[in-house]
Design a protein around this nucleic acid. Structure first.
Length: 252
DNA sequence: AATTAGATCAACCGCAAGGTT
DNA sequence: GAACCTTGCGGTTGATCTAAT
């Protein structure tokens, strides 16, 4: 069943039973907005205590300036798909690549629009125990609580089904680990083995992102610049995606 | 017109990391 | 260094919508 895009207000309809969810009213939004304009961001615990609502979330996902609302453009969709293949469920990182989009929005968009369209996932939109849950378990478990990539050792492996013969395994290391992992600096693999692409960074915020891609075709899709000679740069929409230069990776 | 199934999205929840005391 | 507090993140839930029956 194809559903029309559903635009809903956050306002509870008058006459309805009191909702379990604490939806925001426009006047509450206004109050919060004025509060932040006056006092600045922060002190969310205090504000939330006073209001009884999650003000930080509301501000971050809805009220913050430059929040872009409305349909995703084709470019944004493509970027989300490709970033998700590369990064998994690291919504904040993906959202950081999409100006004006929040991680929550990207996550919702993925779960509702894109997840079901990917060949590696079971089709369907039923929520409970379905596509989102089942498919994402592999990288959900991986990425959960491990996405503080700058600060902690993170290892993730995203495998796929037979429909998508690509395997991405990413390993993010803290600078401490760099001594023992010299091969992460720059690496070339023989063509007959798994292609092992790596970006490296330096200084405090550095981390290493290793991508094992079994299919050279897939590698070329993600990294057109590294067909035979490896070049540690990804390209998104003609934009070089270089780990050590990209603020998206260093944004913390 | 009423009901049902499925889609959408705002908000909630719990955990982990970082910061402060 | 420990304890507490704050913030960020990702998974999940629930309300409400629309199209189909």
């Amino acid at each position: 069943m194809v559903m029309a895009k559903n635009k809903r207000s956050s306002v509870v309809k008058a006459g309805n039973a009191r909702p379990k969810k604490n939806l925001w009213k426009p006047e509450e939004d206004l109050i919060l907005k004025q509060y932040v304009e006056t006092h600045g961001e922060g002190n969310w615990a205090t504000v939330s205590k006073l209001s009884g609502k999650s003000c930080r979330l509301r501000w971050k996902n809805y009220l913050r300036p430059n929040i872009k609302r409305g349909d995703m453009s084709q470019d944004e969709k493509d970027l989300i798909i490709r970033m998700h293949k590369l990064l998994g469920n690291r919504w904040s990182l993906i959202a950081g690549r999409l100006p004006g989009r929040t991680d929550n929005e990207v996550k919702n968009y993925w779960n509702t629009h894109l997840n079901k369209n990917t060949s590696c996932c079971p089709a369907g939109g039923k929520r409970k125990g379905t596509s989102m849950t089942d498919y994402s378990n592999h990288d959900t478990n991986i990425t959960k609580k491990k996405n503080k990539i700058n600060t902690s050792k993170t290892s993730s492996t995203a495998t796929t089904t037979a429909d998508n013969p690509m395997i991405i395994s990413s390993t993010v290391r803290s600078p401490k680990d760099t001594n023992s992992d010299h091969h992460h600096q720059h690496h070339e693999e023989p063509n007959d083995g798994p292609i092992f692409a790596t970006t490296s960074t330096t200084e405090e915020s550095c981390f290493y992102y290793d991508v094992d891609i079994e299919s050279p075709r897939e590698l070329h899709y993600y990294m057109p610049s590294c067909s035979s000679n490896f070049n540690p740069a990804f390209v998104f929409d003609d934009e070089p995606f270089i780990g050590y230069m990209d603020p998206f990776l260093l944004f913390d």
